[in-house]
Design a protein around this nucleic acid. Structure first.
Lengths: 349, 349
DNA sequence: CTGAAAGCGCTAACAT
DNA sequence: ATGTTAGCGCTTTCAG
C-alpha cells in the first residue's frame, strides 16, 4: 500500500497495513499445496512428518494466523457458543461464565459473551448480532424474551439452553433453579424459626424476573402460614452495600416492629447486616436477616448472612455440556439450591 | 433435511435443522435481486422506498438473519474489537468493559471479550484465536506479553491499545495509569501523616504486574523518607474479604507494632478494616489502612477505606475511542488516579 | 435506481 | 499422502 500525497498531513499511519497472510503464502513458502497446508494446520487427515514439519516451520516463520472467517464459510462450521447474560457487574454471571468456560475447555468450542443490561430489546438485538455469526449453540439467561427473540431461537437450528430459571416454558433446553420454590423455602424456614413480622427489600427492576419470582414464592410461603409481608422497600442503582444500609435504616424507621428482613440479594443483605450490627440490633434474636445467592463475599463479614446458594457454576457447567451436544438427558434440568442458615436466623423453635 | 433410517434410535433431534435462510431466499420471496436485497439490509446505496419496503417485509416474514461470515469474507471488514483481560471476577475489568461498551455504542463496533486468568500463555492463545476472526482492533490489559503475542500484535495490521498500565513500552497505543507512581504517592501520603511502621498485604501472583509495580513504587516512596517496609503478607485465591481479615490478623500478630497497612486491593483492605474494627483497634489513630482501586463496595463499609481510584471506566472509554480510529492524539495516554483519603488515614501532622 | 459477474480465503469431496 | 475442483453466502465493481 503506497502512501498517497493526501497522506502528508496525517499522523503516521498506525502501522503499515500489509495484506494479511493467506494459506497461499504459506503454501508458496513451504512448497506444499494449499490443501495440504490446510490439513497440517488443522491436524486433519494424514500428512507425512516431513511435510508437516516444513509447513509448520513456514507458518511460524511468516507469522501466519488462519482466517477463520473463510474457514467457517467453507466448512459451514463455527466453533462459537453465544452466551447472553444480563450483566457482568452482578458477580453471579461471571461465576456462571466460569462454569461454562471450564466445561467448554478442550472441546474446541469458545464462549462469546453478550450483555443485555436486563433489557429485552437489547437482548433481542444482541441475539440477532450473535446469530449472524452462526454460532453452534446459544446459552442465555432467563425464560422471558421478546417474541422476535423466541422466533429467532426457534428457527436458528442450533441447541439453545436457557439458564438460571426453570419457572416457565423454555424454547429448547433449560438449566436452573426454581426461584419461586427458593423463595417459598426461605419463607418456610423463617416462619419455622418463629419470625412473624417480615419485610422484603429488593431491586426495582421490572425485568429481573428471577428476583420477582423469588418474592412471589416468598409471599406464597408466608401465606401458607397465614402471614403476609409487613413492609417492603425497593431501590435501583448505586453501591448495593450502601443501598442495603440505607434501605434497612429506612424500613426499620418506618416499621420498627419488623422481626425479619428478606433481601433479594446478598450484597444488599450484607449492607443491612452491617447497619444492624452498628445500630446495636440483636441479630438474629431481635431481628433476623437473609439474602440470596451465596456469594463469596459473605465469608468475610462479621457474621454469616443466611442465604441460599444459586448453583451458579454448576448451572454454567451443565448448560455447556448440553449445548456442546453431550448429555442426552431431559430438556429441563432443575438444580436444588441449599439453604445456608448462617448466623442470622435464630434456631427453629 | 430428511431423516435417515439411522435416526430411529436417537432421541428426538434438538430441532428440525433447516438450512438457514440466505439472501437468495429473501430475493425470491420479494422478487428483488440479491444485490438489491443486500443493499436494503445494509442501508447502503439508493433504493426506492417501494422495493425497500418489500424487501424488509419479506426478510421479516421469513425471519432472515444475515450471514456475517460471508459478509465479512466478501467485504474484508469485521466490526469486532477484541478485548483481552485477565479476569472477570475482579470487578475492575467489568468496569473497564463498561467504559469500552459505552464508547463503542453506536459506532457499529462490537467488543468481544477474552479472558486469560493472568496467564501469559493463555493470553497468547486467546489472542491467536481472536485474531483469526480478523477483528478491526485489539484492546488488551497490560504491557507484558509473550514474544509471540507481541509479534502477532505487531503484524496484525490493526490498532492495538494496551490498557491499565503505562509503566513500560507498548506495542502501539497505551492508556492507563502509572502504578509505580500511584504506589509512591500513597507512600508519601502515609509518611506525611506520620506513620512509620508500615506493612504491605497483597496477592501472590507473579503475573499481576500492576500490583507488583505499585508495591515497587510504594517501597521507593518509603525509601525517599528513609523508611522501608516493616513486614509483608501474601495470599492467593479464596474470598478476598475473608483473606483480608486473616492476613491482617496474621501480620498484626507477628508485628504488633505496625502502624499502617497498605493493601494491594480494596477488597482485602475492606476485610482488614472489618477485622480491625471488631478487634477494637483505633483506626486511623493507632493503625492506618489503605487499599487500591476505589471500588463501589467501599461506600457501604462502616468506615471509608483510603484508596486510589484506578480510572477504570475512563480507561475503557479512551481505549475504545482510540481503537475506533477517532482520537489522533499521542500514543500514550496517562491518566491520573486521585488519592481518596477516606477515614482510615489520620490527617497529616 | 437496479442487476450481473467475479471472487473474498478457505475446506469438502473427490481424484490420484 | 497429496493435489484438484468447486463452491460456502455475501459484497465489490462495473454496467445498464
Amino acid at each position: 500500500m503506497t502512501r498517497s500525497p493526501a497522506d502528508h498531513g496525517r499522523p503516521t499511519p498506525r502501522s503499515a497495513k500489509p495484506r494479511p497472510l493467506t494459506l497461499r503464502d504459506v503454501s508458496e513458502a513451504s512448497g506444499v499445496s494449499e490443501m495440504t497446508v490446510s490439513r497440517v494446520l488443522r491436524n486433519r487427515g494424514d500428512v507425512s512428518e516431513g511435510t508437516r514439519a516444513r509447513v509448520l516451520e513456514a507458518a511460524r516463520r511468516l507469522g501466519y494466523v488462519p482466517n477463520r472467517i473463510a474457514g467457517a464459510l467453507a466448512s459451514q462450521r463455527v466453533n462459537l457458543i453465544a452466551v447472553i447474560i444480563p450483566s457482568l457487574s452482578n458477580l453471579v454471571f461471571p461465576e456462571v461464565l466460569g462454569g461454562i468456560s471450564s466445561e467448554l475447555e478442550g472441546t474446541g468450542l469458545t464462549p462469546v459473551v453478550g450483555v443485555t443490561n436486563y433489557s429485552p430489546a437489547r437482548e433481542e438485538q444482541v441475539l440477532y448480532e450473535m446469530l449472524s455469526w452462526r454460532p453452534s449453540g446459544v446459552i442465555l439467561a432467563g425464560l422471558e424474551h421478546t417474541p422476535a427473540a423466541r422466533a429467532m431461537l426457534l428457527s436458528a437450528g442450533i441447541p439453545v439452553v436457557e439458564i438460571m430459571d426453570v419457572d416457565g416454558t423454555g424454547v429448547d433446553s433449560v438449566v436452573g433453579i426454581s426461584h419461586r420454590r427458593a423463595g417459598r423455602q426461605m419463607a418456610q424456614a423463617i416462619v419455622a424459626a418463629g419470625y412473624r413480622r417480615i419485610g422484603f427489600l429488593g431491586t426495582k427492576m421490572p425485568e429481573d424476573h428471577r428476583s420477582r419470582k423469588r418474592l412471589e414464592g416468598f409471599a406464597e410461603g408466608l401465606a401458607e402460614a397465614g402471614l403476609q409481608l409487613a413492609d417492603r422497600e425497593f431501590y435501583s442503582g448505586g453501591s448495593a452495600l450502601k443501598k442495603g444500609r440505607e434501605m434497612t435504616e429506612a424500613i426499620m424507621a418506618r416499621s420498627p416492629d419488623l422481626d425479619f428482613l428478606y433481601y433479594s440479594n446478598d450484597m444488599i443483605g450484607a449492607g443491612g447486616l452491617l447497619w444492624c450490627l452498628e445500630a446495636g440490633i440483636d441479630v438474629p434474636g431481635r431481628l433476623g436477616l437473609a439474602g440470596f445467592n451465596g456469594v463469596d463475599l459473605l465469608e468475610g463479614l462479621p457474621r454469616r448472612l443466611a442465604t441460599m446458594d444459586a448453583c451458579r457454576a454448576e448451572i454454567g457447567r451443565r448448560a455447556a455440556r448440553i449445548v456442546g451436544g453431550h448429555e442426552t438427558g431431559p430438556k429441563v434440568v432443575e438444580l436444588t439450591p441449599v439453604l445456608q442458615p448462617g448466623d442470622t436466623i435464630r434456631p427453629s423453635a
